[in-house]
């Protein structure tokens, strides 16, 4: 579902506008697999598996596959419904340069929640 992020974010004009000062690459770890999300002026340009160990990113957000799967359900359970709550519950980690992340905290929360299915969808 992480592959859905580009289409979901770019179709959301309000979200792209809120992220208009964001241009960076960040890492999303889903279980043992690392993905790199490339953002330019709020638009997600690409989402792909990390190809080489030295590919650099600004920061990394990691959680287990089951945690992300629950996060993307229409009505996630407590501690899996919000990125910060996942971190405070010990279910996710944040590393790297957190300044751009905190400067745009709600944007990144919403980007990462964007694959979430609306109620009534699968």
């Amino acid at each position: 579902m992480i592959e859905d992020v580009a289409a979901k974010v770019n179709a959301d004009t309000a979200l792209v506008r809120r992220g208009r000062y964001v241009s960076l690459d960040f890492l999303v770890g889903i279980g043992d697999t690392d993905y790199i999300v490339a953002v330019r002026e709020g638009r997600v340009m690409s989402v792909g598996k990390r190809r080489l160990p030295l590919e650099s990113v600004s920061f990394a957000i990691r959680a287990g596959r089951d945690v992300w799967t629950e996060h993307w359900k229409p009505m996630p359970k407590r501690d899996r419904h919000d990125l910060f709550n996942m971190v405070s519950a010990g279910l996710a980690t944040l590393d790297g340069d957190l300044l751009p992340f905190m400067q745009n905290l709600q944007y990144f929360k919403d980007v990462l929640a964007s694959p979430r299915a609306a109620a009534g969808e699968a």
Partner: peptide, 16 residues
Amino acid sequence: PDIHGGMVSAAFVSGQ
């Protein structure tokens, strides 16, 4: 000064 206090405070608690 390099983070908007209102925006980050709201984002801090949005998951609450």
